[in-house]
């Protein structure tokens, strides 16, 4: 059987994603059933740039499955400092581990690793390009909270121009029925043309606006992202606009009682601390769902069928 990798969120069909999410649900409900599923298997986490949360989430997933983990947390402690190529690293890691997780500052590095590795490769972020396990996490979170990935309105708020998690999530959600998009951002950080072109081509409805308050009552999911000061051309614009993209209890009063708030984290100040206790705040649950979906992903890529063990 040809090995599978996860390089982009679209590497799996909708049906495969449904299976993956069903498995993640089962893992959430029956963790003991999976506690030894990866016994004897090793996962290498190769992080050429640091990302504590993503690395620990993958490692937790493997440990929960009874497997072992090894790796390096930053490029400065790997052979990359000696000039080793990603291709060679992938070949070498294939001799040590059963599955490889890679984060790299350069776009496309995971695709190179997957090409040269003989073991499955998970892309844990390649520069500003793709971060598919975050998208899987987002999809599982929405599905678990709402019961379905069809028929809802999602507001994406903040930096929609440079935010790769936003682009990946949109690309993944267009495969589902009747998902409506509301893009909330300053003019400087609007969603790129290639995304709106794609939505227009597919006839998928969307609207763009500047103020969160104007649209929050119609949203079923609010996906917050950080607006970084350095993205603005001048300080004046930043000061004028930054509060539009801060969610607080006052703004939340106008939202539906069953609207859920997601955030890929880390959060800085775009969600006020007084929102954390609101039952609609789902961003920490999202982290937990990230572990379940990574467990399901590891099982899928290693072709481990727990029901046959």
């Amino acid at each position: 059987m040809k090995k599978r990798d996860l390089l982009t969120p679209l590497d799996f069909s909708k049906e495969e994603l449904d299976e993956l999410f069903d498995r993640a649900d089962d893992i959430r409900q029956h963790p003991e059933k999976y506690a030894h599923a990866c016994e004897g298997k090793k996962m290498a986490t190769c992080f050429f740039e640091p990302s504590t949360r993503t690395r620990l989430s993958h490692e937790t997933a493997m440990l929960n499955l009874g497997g072992k983990v090894m790796g390096f947390p930053s490029g400065s402690v790997s052979s990359a400092t000696k000039g080793e190529t990603v291709a060679d690293t992938a070949r070498v890691i294939s001799c040590f581990a059963d599955i490889m997780v890679i984060r790299h500052p350069k776009e496309g590095a995971a695709a190179v690793a997957a090409h040269y590795a003989s073991i499955p490769v998970i892309n844990a972020g390649d520069g500003g390009h793709q971060h598919p396990t975050q998208t899987l996490t987002d999809l599982l979170t929405i599905r678990s909270l709402r019961g379905s990935l069809d028929n809802f309105t999602i507001g994406l708020c903040g930096d929609l121009k440079f935010g790769r998690t936003v682009h990946s999530l949109i690309n993944a959600l267009v495969r589902y029925e009747n998902v409506r998009f509301v893009f909330i951002s300053p003019e400087e950080l609007k969603v790129p043309d290639y995304i709106t072109d794609m939505l227009n081509d597919k006839g998928i409805p969307y609207e763009e606006c500047i103020r969160l308050e104007d649209v929050i009552p119609k949203l079923d999911i609010l996906y917050m992202t950080r607006v970084q000061k350095e993205r603005f051309f001048n300080e004046e614009d930043y000061v004028r606009l930054k509060d539009f993209y801060v969610l607080n209890k006052a703004k939340l009063k106008r939202a539906k009682p069953d609207m859920y708030i997601l955030h890929p984290l880390p959060r800085v100040n775009e969600i006020a601390a007084d929102v954390d206790d609101d039952p609609r705040a789902a961003y920490f649950k999202q982290v937990q769902y990230g572990v379940y979906v990574r467990e399901a992903l590891i099982l899928k890529l290693l072709n481990i069928d727990v029901d046959k063990l």
């Binding site: 291709a87 350069k106 776009e107 590095a109 695709a111 190179v112």
Partner: peptide, 13 residues
């Protein structure tokens, strides 16, 4: 020509 692309640093690809 994307300076962020892996091909910008690994020239043998």
């Amino acid at each position: 020509t994307n300076p962020r692309c892996i091909t910008s640093v690994e020239t043998s690809l």
